[in-house]
Design a protein around this nucleic acid. Structure first.
Lengths: 220, 220, 220, 220
DNA sequence: TATGAATGAGTGTTCATTCAT
DNA sequence: AATGAATGAACACTCATTCAT
C-alpha cells in the first residue's frame, strides 16, 4: 500500500464498523458494499490478500476500480470488514439457537460447534483468513477483531464452565480448552491437503468425537 | 528486467534441497546462506511473506540486495528453504531420540510432542508460516514440502497404531488424530494473542493433558 | 514483483493485432496507443530495443511510466505492434495502387518498389528494426510477423512470375530474386553511413537501375 | 552499462586495436583474449549483445567473470574487438589471394565475393552483427570500424572501376554498386528465415548470378 | 592470473489510490 | 454513482564492474 495513503479502517469495536462514507446509508449502497466484501473474501481466501489486487476485486464484483472507492476506504478496510462481517453471525449463534435455553451442556457445546462449522459452509475458511492475514491490519483494528473473537470463545468457555460443576465436563483449564476448540474448528481448512478425503459430516463427527473425549468426564 | 518465467526452486525431495548455486560449497557461503534463511524466516513470520521485501531482508542480514542473489535464486526459494531447513530437524527427531527403542507408546508420543514443540524454541512458528504462506510456492515444491511433513505425521500415526493393539491407546481414526495432534502443536503461535499468558512448559503440560485425554484408553 | 511468466503479445495474424486491453476502444485511447508505438519505434530505431527503457518511452511520449501500461501490455508488445503497424500499409500497397490492373509487369514492379520505399518516409527503417530486433519476440509472434512479410514478398514474386512468360523478365529463381529485392530496399537504412550523400529520389533511381538490370530480359 | 564506468574502447584505427592492459603481450594472453572474443561473438550473434551477459561469456570461455576483466576492458570493448578481429582477414583477402595479380576483373570480383562469404563460414553473420549492434559503440569507435569496412568496399569499387574502361563492366555509380554488393553478401544471414532452403554453394551461385547481371556489360 | 564476493544503479512491471468528468 | 485515465512509489531481480585476497 502507498504509505502516504494509509488510513486506518474505522473501528467502533462494539457496534459493527461504521460506514466508510457518510452518504452511503441506503439499502442499495449497503447491498453493493456487502457484495464487495463477500467477493473479496472469496478472492482473499483463494489467492491471499497480497496476491489479490483491487482490479481483481473490481472484475469479480463488476464494479469499476475507481468506483470501488466510493464504497470502501481502502483495501485494508475490506479485510477488516470481512472479519467484521463474518464474526457477526458467529456472535449471534448463541442467541439465534437459544443455546442458553438448552438444558444439557453437552448439547449446548455440540450445537455451538456444529453451527460454527456449518455456518460458513466452507469449513471455516474465514478463520483461516484471520490467522493468515490478520497481521496486515493495524494493531487497533486487530484488537477490535480479536475482541469479537474472544467473545465467541468466552461463550464456549461459558458452556464449559457450566458443565464442570454439573459433573458433565471435566476440564482443568477452561480457557485453554475453549481456545483449543475454537482452533480445532479450522483444522479442515488449515490442513486441507490431508483432510480432503473427509466429507463435511464425517469431519464434524470426527471432530466431535475428538472434542468429547477431551471435555467429557467419565466414570473412574 | 525481463523475467522469462519463474524458476522453481530446486527440489530433491528426499535429500535436503541442493545448493542454489553450483559454486557455493564453502563453509562461509553456507553460513551466509543459512543466515539469510534464518533472518528471512523471522521477517516472514513477523510481517508476512508478501509484506517483506528483499530490501528488508538485505537490511536485516547486512547483505547488499544485489549480493543476496549471489546466495539465493529468488525470494520464493528463500521461503522454500525455510521450510526445508526447519523440517529437517523435525524428521530427525525420531531417530535422534531413538523413539522406537522406547517401550511405552505413551512415552514415545510424549517425547515426540515435547521435542516437536521444543526444538523450534518458537512454539512452532515455522509451521504457522507454512500454513499461512505455502500458497506462494509452486505446486511441485509444495508437494515436496508436504511430503516431508507427512513423513512426520506418519511417524506419529505409527506410534498411535502401535499403541492401539496394546490397549494403551483407543483411537478410531489414527490418521485424523495424527493430523490433529500435529495441528495442535501450532496452537500457541496461531492463537498467540490468547496464549501469551502461558509459559512454554505450561503450554506443553496443557497440551499433553489435552492430547492424552484423546488418545489414552481408559477403564470402563 | 513475481512475474509468473511472459505473456505473449496478442496475435491474430490475419487481422491486425487486437487491442491489448478490452476497454480501449475509444478514439482517444487508440490515438494515445498509436502515439506510444510511433515514439517507441523512433527510439528503438535510434538506440536499439534493449537500450531503450520504458522510462525513455515515458519521457518521449509524456505518458507516465505506470500509465504506459494502461495502453500496452509489455515492452515486447510494443515491438510487436510496431511491426504490425508498419506492415499493414505495406500489405495494402498492392490493392491501394491497383497494381494488378497495371498492364506492364515492369511498371507493376517499379510502382511496388517506389511505394514500398516511399511510404515509410524513412527509407524503410522499420525493416531494419525487424532484422535487428526480431529475436526478442516469442516464436509465435515472430512467425505471425514473418507471415505478413512473406505476403508482400509473394506479391513481388507474383509480379516477377507474370513477367517471365511475357518475356519482359528473365529470372531463374523468382523466390530468391523477390527476397533479394525486398532486402535491397533497406540498403539505405542499413548502410546509412555510406548512403547519406544520396537523396531519396536519387536512391530510388539508383535502386531501380540496379534491380532492372537484374530482372529485365534483354536482347542477345 | 554502468554510466560512470563507461570507458571508450581503445582505437588506433590503422593498427588493430591495442591491448587493453599494458601487461598482456604474451602469447598465452593473446590466445586467451582471442578466445574470449570468438566465444563472445558466437553468443552475440545467437542471443544479441544486450541479451548476453558477462556471466554468459564467462561460462562459455571457462574464464571467471572477474578474471575476464584482466583480458578486456569492458563488454563494449569485446564488441569492438569482434568487429576488429573479423575485419582483419577481410582486409587481407585482397593481398592473400593476390587479387590484383588476376587479369580478368570478373575473376577478381568473383574471387573476392566467394572469399568474403566463404571466410566466415557462417554466411557473414558477423556483418549482421555489425548492422545489428554497432549502435552500442561510441561514435569514435564506430567510425574506426566503418573506416575498415570502407576499405574493403573501396577494394571492391577498385575492381569495378578497373573493369569499366575495359568494357567488362558497365556501371553508372561504382560506389553505390560496391556498397550494394557488400550489403548483398549478408542476405543469407539477414533473411535466414526465407533462405535456409539454400545450401552455401547454391547461395553463392545465385548471388553471383545476381551480381553479374548488374555489373557485366553486354552486347547491345 | 585467478577467484568469489560485493556493489549499486538499473530494468520491466504492478498496484493502491486519486481525480476530472 | 460511475468511468477511464493518471500517478508515483514500490517490487523482485539483473548486470557490468570492482575489489580484496
Amino acid at each position: 500500500m502507498t504509505k502516504k495513503g494509509r488510513q486506518a479502517a474505522a473501528c467502533k469495536c462494539k457496534s459493527s464498523c461504521g460506514a466508510s462514507k457518510n452518504t452511503g446509508t441506503s439499502a442499495v449502497f449497503q447491498k453493493r458494499k456487502s457484495n464487495i466484501i463477500k467477493k473479496a473474501a472469496k478472492l482473499f481466501i483463494k489467492k491471499g490478500y497480497a496476491q489479490t489486487s483491487m482490479r481483481d476485486i473490481a472484475k469479480a464484483t463488476g464494479i469499476d476500480v475507481g468506483n470501488l472507492y466510493y464504497f470502501i476506504k481502502s483495501k485494508e478496510e475490506i479485510l477488516y470488514l470481512i472479519f467484521d462481517m463474518f464474526h457477526k453471525p458467529e456472535e449471534e449463534i448463541f442467541e439465534r439457537f437459544e443455546i442458553n435455553k438448552i438444558e444439557d451442556p453437552v448439547q449446548q457445546l455440540k450445537t455451538m460447534i456444529t453451527e460454527l462449522i456449518g455456518f460458513g459452509g466452507n469449513f471455516r475458511q474465514e478463520i483461516l483468513l484471520l490467522y493468515r492475514e490478520s497481521r496486515v491490519l493495524p494493531k487497533e483494528n486487530l484488537k477490535c477483531i480479536m475482541a469479537r473473537e474472544s467473545h465467541v470463545i468466552s461463550q464456549i468457555e461459558g458452556i464449559l464452565k457450566e458443565g464442570v460443576p454439573k459433573k458433565v465436563f471435566k476440564i482443568e483449564d477452561t480457557s485453554f480448552t475453549a481456545n483449543m476448540i475454537m482452533y480445532e474448528l479450522a483444522l479442515y481448512s488449515m490442513r486441507h491437503w490431508n483432510m480432503t478425503p473427509y466429507l463435511k459430516n464425517e469431519f464434524i463427527d470426527l471432530l466431535w468425537n475428538h472434542i468429547s473425549k477431551v471435555v467429557l468426564s467419565r466414570p473412574d
